[in-house]
Amino acid sequence: MAEVKLLTFVCNWCSYGGADQAGGLKIEYPSGVRLVKVMCSGRVDPQLILQGFRKGADGVLVLGCHPGDCHYKSGNYSAQKRMLLLEPLLAQFGIESDRFQLNWVSAGEGERFGKVVNEMYNKVAALGPLKLTDSAVKEETA
Protein backbone atom coordinates (compact mmCIF):
# COMPACT_ATOMS: atom_id res chain seq x y z
CA MET A 1 0.00 0.00 0.00
CA ALA A 2 1.09 3.54 -0.77
CA GLU A 3 2.50 5.75 1.97
CA VAL A 4 0.07 8.51 2.76
CA LYS A 5 -0.27 11.41 5.16
CA LEU A 6 -3.17 11.46 7.56
CA LEU A 7 -3.63 14.89 9.13
CA THR A 8 -5.14 14.18 12.55
CA PHE A 9 -6.55 16.91 14.77
CA VAL A 10 -6.81 15.92 18.44
CA CYS A 11 -8.60 17.99 21.05
CA ASN A 12 -6.61 19.04 24.09
CA TRP A 13 -8.99 17.68 26.73
CA CYS A 14 -9.80 14.16 25.52
CA SER A 15 -8.29 12.86 22.30
CA TYR A 16 -4.81 14.19 22.94
CA GLY A 17 -4.93 12.30 26.23
CA GLY A 18 -5.98 9.23 24.28
CA ALA A 19 -3.01 9.66 21.92
CA ASP A 20 -0.72 10.13 24.91
CA GLN A 21 -1.99 6.95 26.50
CA ALA A 22 -1.54 5.09 23.21
CA GLY A 23 2.09 6.23 23.34
CA GLY A 24 2.43 4.97 26.92
CA LEU A 25 0.96 1.63 25.91
CA LYS A 26 3.40 1.50 22.97
CA ILE A 27 0.54 1.09 20.50
CA GLU A 28 1.94 1.31 16.99
CA TYR A 29 0.62 3.48 14.21
CA PRO A 30 2.19 4.64 10.92
CA SER A 31 4.48 7.66 10.84
CA GLY A 32 2.19 9.14 8.19
CA VAL A 33 -0.30 9.95 10.95
CA ARG A 34 0.50 13.58 11.80
CA LEU A 35 -1.07 14.88 15.01
CA VAL A 36 -2.09 18.49 15.49
CA LYS A 37 -3.33 19.44 18.93
CA VAL A 38 -6.21 21.92 19.06
CA MET A 39 -8.13 23.10 22.11
CA CYS A 40 -11.38 21.52 20.93
CA SER A 41 -12.69 19.68 17.89
CA GLY A 42 -15.01 22.68 17.49
CA ARG A 43 -11.89 24.72 16.73
CA VAL A 44 -11.28 22.83 13.51
CA ASP A 45 -12.56 25.33 10.97
CA PRO A 46 -13.44 23.72 7.61
CA GLN A 47 -10.89 26.13 6.11
CA LEU A 48 -8.16 24.24 8.01
CA ILE A 49 -9.37 20.94 6.59
CA LEU A 50 -9.29 22.20 3.01
CA GLN A 51 -5.89 23.79 3.57
CA GLY A 52 -4.75 20.43 4.90
CA PHE A 53 -5.82 18.71 1.69
CA ARG A 54 -4.26 21.51 -0.37
CA LYS A 55 -0.96 21.28 1.45
CA GLY A 56 -0.54 17.55 0.97
CA ALA A 57 -2.74 15.62 3.41
CA ASP A 58 -4.24 12.53 1.78
CA GLY A 59 -6.79 12.23 4.56
CA VAL A 60 -8.05 14.35 7.45
CA LEU A 61 -9.20 12.89 10.77
CA VAL A 62 -10.74 15.02 13.49
CA LEU A 63 -10.86 13.52 16.97
CA GLY A 64 -12.83 15.01 19.84
CA CYS A 65 -14.42 14.11 23.17
CA HIS A 66 -17.40 11.76 23.14
CA PRO A 67 -20.83 13.44 22.78
CA GLY A 68 -21.73 15.08 26.06
CA ASP A 69 -18.09 15.19 27.24
CA CYS A 70 -16.71 18.23 25.38
CA HIS A 71 -14.83 20.52 27.76
CA TYR A 72 -16.63 23.44 26.12
CA LYS A 73 -19.97 21.60 26.18
CA SER A 74 -20.90 21.76 22.51
CA GLY A 75 -17.68 22.05 20.48
CA ASN A 76 -17.92 18.48 19.29
CA TYR A 77 -21.55 18.92 18.26
CA SER A 78 -20.53 21.94 16.17
CA ALA A 79 -17.69 19.92 14.68
CA GLN A 80 -20.14 17.18 13.76
CA LYS A 81 -22.47 19.60 11.98
CA ARG A 82 -19.62 21.10 9.97
CA MET A 83 -18.08 17.77 9.05
CA LEU A 84 -21.40 16.32 7.91
CA LEU A 85 -22.09 19.44 5.85
CA LEU A 86 -18.61 19.36 4.35
CA GLU A 87 -18.83 15.70 3.35
CA PRO A 88 -21.25 15.94 0.39
CA LEU A 89 -19.43 19.05 -0.79
CA LEU A 90 -16.09 17.23 -0.86
CA ALA A 91 -17.75 14.37 -2.71
CA GLN A 92 -18.72 16.80 -5.48
CA PHE A 93 -15.05 17.73 -5.76
CA GLY A 94 -14.22 14.05 -6.14
CA ILE A 95 -12.80 13.58 -2.64
CA GLU A 96 -13.84 10.17 -1.31
CA SER A 97 -15.63 10.01 2.05
CA ASP A 98 -12.97 7.60 3.37
CA ARG A 99 -10.45 10.44 3.31
CA PHE A 100 -12.33 12.36 5.88
CA GLN A 101 -13.70 11.44 9.32
CA LEU A 102 -14.79 12.74 12.70
CA ASN A 103 -14.52 10.35 15.63
CA TRP A 104 -14.53 10.36 19.41
CA VAL A 105 -11.63 9.30 21.63
CA SER A 106 -11.53 10.00 25.37
CA ALA A 107 -8.39 10.56 27.44
CA GLY A 108 -8.55 7.00 28.77
CA GLU A 109 -8.97 5.36 25.38
CA GLY A 110 -5.40 4.77 24.20
CA GLU A 111 -6.37 1.53 22.55
CA ARG A 112 -9.33 3.07 20.81
CA PHE A 113 -7.07 5.86 19.55
CA GLY A 114 -4.75 3.28 17.99
CA LYS A 115 -7.66 1.43 16.42
CA VAL A 116 -9.28 4.57 14.95
CA VAL A 117 -6.10 6.02 13.45
CA ASN A 118 -4.90 2.68 12.07
CA GLU A 119 -8.26 1.90 10.48
CA MET A 120 -8.50 5.32 8.92
CA TYR A 121 -4.87 5.25 7.78
CA ASN A 122 -5.42 1.91 6.06
CA LYS A 123 -8.51 3.18 4.27
CA VAL A 124 -6.66 6.26 3.01
CA ALA A 125 -3.63 4.17 2.05
CA ALA A 126 -5.92 1.89 0.03
CA LEU A 127 -7.14 4.95 -1.90
CA GLY A 128 -3.58 6.19 -2.39
CA PRO A 129 -2.30 9.77 -2.55
CA LEU A 130 -4.89 12.49 -3.14
CA LYS A 131 -4.48 14.32 -6.43
CA LEU A 132 -5.81 17.84 -6.60
CA THR A 133 -6.10 19.60 -9.94
CA ASP A 134 -2.89 20.85 -11.46
CA SER A 135 -1.49 23.77 -13.37
CA ALA A 136 -3.17 25.73 -16.15
CA VAL A 137 0.16 26.42 -17.75
CA LYS A 138 0.67 22.79 -18.64
CA GLU A 139 -2.70 22.67 -20.34
CA GLU A 140 -1.97 24.63 -23.44
CA THR A 141 -2.69 22.70 -26.58
CA ALA A 142 -1.25 25.25 -28.98
Binding site: P46, Q47, L50, Y77, S78, Q80, R82, L84, L85, P88
Partner: peptide, 29 residues
Protein backbone atom coordinates in the same frame (compact mmCIF):
# COMPACT_ATOMS: atom_id res chain seq x y z
CA UNK B 1 -8.24 36.83 5.29
CA UNK B 2 -10.70 34.06 4.39
CA UNK B 3 -8.86 31.28 2.57
CA UNK B 4 -11.94 29.55 1.18
CA UNK B 5 -15.44 30.93 0.65
CA UNK B 6 -17.15 27.53 0.64
CA UNK B 7 -15.43 26.34 3.80
CA UNK B 8 -16.30 29.60 5.53
CA UNK B 9 -19.93 29.17 4.50
CA UNK B 10 -19.95 25.62 5.81
CA UNK B 11 -19.10 26.99 9.27
CA UNK B 12 -21.71 29.71 9.03
CA UNK B 13 -24.53 27.50 7.77
CA UNK B 14 -23.69 24.61 10.12
CA UNK B 15 -24.45 26.92 13.04
CA UNK B 16 -28.10 26.92 11.91
CA UNK B 17 -28.50 23.13 11.83
CA UNK B 18 -30.62 21.52 14.54
CA UNK B 19 -29.57 18.11 15.81
CA UNK B 20 -27.04 16.54 18.13
CA UNK B 21 -27.13 13.14 16.47
CA UNK B 22 -25.42 12.43 13.16
CA UNK B 23 -28.72 11.10 11.76
CA UNK B 24 -30.59 14.35 12.46
CA UNK B 25 -27.77 16.46 11.05
CA UNK B 26 -27.53 14.34 7.91
CA UNK B 27 -31.26 14.78 7.32
CA UNK B 28 -30.91 18.55 7.46
CA UNK B 29 -27.80 18.48 5.25
Amino acid sequence: GVTDQGAKLVSAIAAYIDGDSAIEVKKAV
